[in-house]
Nucleic acid binder design. Structure first.
Lengths: 199, 199, 199, 199
DNA sequence: CGATAAGCGAGACGGTACGTCTCGTCTTTGA
DNA sequence: TCAAAGACGAGACGTACCGTCTCGCTTATCG
């Protein structure tokens, strides 16, 4: 399906990065296409023109692959702006983050990985470290605002982070409301108000 | 596994409520026991001493069963207090809600159902309506506070609800932090501050 | 309501003999068709319109299935004649036996099972007991001749059996010469001569 | 596994005979060790401390390698004696042949190659020419006896050869009886009797 | 004597088949 | 007359091999 014209060149005993890329691309395409249908490893392998073992050589399980496909898609999504103002920084960050998660392939991958994580401890670990990383970025943004004295002393940074990503995941997984930019802006404003309000 | 001593009595052509209860009980036990291992319908049927068809007679799919097991466990958890004060109402509600979701069987069921919902549209619908119901309760609480004039005109009730349940689900599914009562209280205070702060 | 040509009727909790028959039939057809190509379980399942698990429910491994397909095909091949004369009894038996083994499906099954038996101890056991059974029939024929005093006292019945089946298997597996009826007759005559010759 | 002390010296652009020998040795060791388990090319390569390609450079397929390992082991086993007497010549030849095939590595190789031959036409061809060669030796022995006038005019030389090797292969592949020297002697005597008996 | 040719260990690659697992549907049979 | 028992079709999972390919190295041979 992916690259029909021309076989991939072998790379001998070295990992074939092109094959790895084809796998990730196929994974993302299938995630995007099949709406939550559940993507099979066989399908990914076939779409990438790859033996199944080549997938399992580099990714210990389907979850790892999906997470990588997701990270690939989410690359560069969260630059963590620093404009000197909590409100605008938050708005910029959450808007970008929501926009990234709105990408169909990214959204599908996030959802599938989250689903795997509920069954497979290994997937849970992967997802945990992925989210940990994202949390740290947002927390850094908040810490800079705190250092500038913008936040009320009562503000709980971790709880703020939980609220921001909580809304994201909640909407993503339940699907009761879209991840619009307006929603991101409203959430940013609300969190800024909460963080600056005196107790 | 479940009811060793004594066979269940047949009830003729009427639904055997005792069997249904045994199924739910077995489901909850397996959810609780198998830490995220993924519970199979066959396992539930065997544990309940029940034919698989008896399960599918009353629940159209595994997700429906798990959701019922969950609701069974969560029964009465959300009384939506009305004490006349936003802060204490929110604290009471969130504390009770977090406590309910902390129950191992309830947590496991929520996680499994959420996982199913990412693949199966039917499960997604079920989860959606389940959460919709919970959202409505919390929104009612907020609306009453608004009617009492406690909220800033800028407060976005739906967004507040998303923040509250977002934190719950986010912690539940990612597992980076526990659903303690302290967390519930802190969240309640933060949301109250946000809702009452002037823009 | 075993309706339209094609679908098999379910048999509920009982083994579906029709499905088993379809599996054996498909196995024999594929054995016959694919000249030694090696028949896959998936192919058999697909050809029989059956889930793979249904095969593995009744046959613990591919070898068992192939052996059954073979026995099915070889049914009634070895009536062990008793006409009161060693020469004609042997000729009749070997001719019938060779004719049976000349059937493409039977030959293919024999060869495949023999191949499996060289790797898989379980298959080896199966093949052993299959051949044991055939040996016993031929040995009975020889014993009756011995009881009639037709054999030299020096005749070694087991060795005669080994010679007869040895030629069969040797030709079958190496393929250097066909299992013609003339060959069976010549072998019968040679063995009779050997068995009756005085040391 | 094979050569622990010291790496093999490179031979530059010349074929490294030592590597070839290590491969054959590893193959024979694994055949002997793994009781019918089925020896993989990867395992042989690893045991010989050799790249897989080095195997495929010199042997076009696994069967070729196994057959070579076998021939290596069976070297000099079949001198085709000529003592001027059918009985003793046959006994000497069959005893030596059975003894050779009793060697665990030789037996395993013969069995594995025979197994391959049932699936792979190339392996079938190899096995065929290997057996053809052995047949010719035994047939030569018989022809000399015939030239000496020892055989009955009714004797069918090819059928005698088939019986001798048939018993060998039959016992080897089915495993119902061992390839003892006593069996070889008995077989030789029986075949001599058959060949000399008047019709 | 330096360039070149080939063998070598290593191991990734595309493929095929294996045997296991679970889902949701179906029918029989035991109480 | 139900419901337990469990077989069934479907299809994904992760593993084991096969025979091919390329890399980076080493050594003999040839210009």
């Amino acid at each position: 399906m992916a690259d029909d014209q021309g076989r991939r060149a072998h790379t001998g005993r070295r990992r074939n990065e092109e094959a790895a890329r084809a796998i990730l691309r196929a994974a993302r395409e299938l995630l995007e296409r099949g709406d939550g249908a559940g993507v099979s490893v066989d399908a990914i392998a076939a779409a990438a023109g790859v033996g199944k073992q080549t997938i399992y050589r580099w990714w210990p399980s389907k979850s790892d692959l999906l997470l990588d496909a997701l990270v690939e898609g989410a690359r560069g999504l969260a630059p963590a702006p620093d404009e000197g103002d909590l409100g605008s920084d938050l708005a910029a960050f959450l808007t970008a983050t929501f926009r990234g998660a709105r990408d169909p392939a990214v959204a599908a991958a996030l959802r599938q990985v989250a689903a795997e994580a509920q069954r497979d401890p290994r997937a849970a670990g992967l997802l945990r470290s992925f989210t940990e990383d994202r949390r740290r970025v947002l927390r850094g943004l908040l810490e800079r605002a705190a250092a500038r004295g913008e936040l009320s002393p009562a503000a709980d940074l971790d709880l703020l982070v939980d609220q921001a990503y909580g809304v994201l995941w909640y909407r993503l997984l339940i699907g009761h409301a879209p991840l619009t930019e307006a929603a991101a802006a409203a959430l940013a404003a609300a969190l800024a108000r909460q963080a600056t309000a005196s107790p």
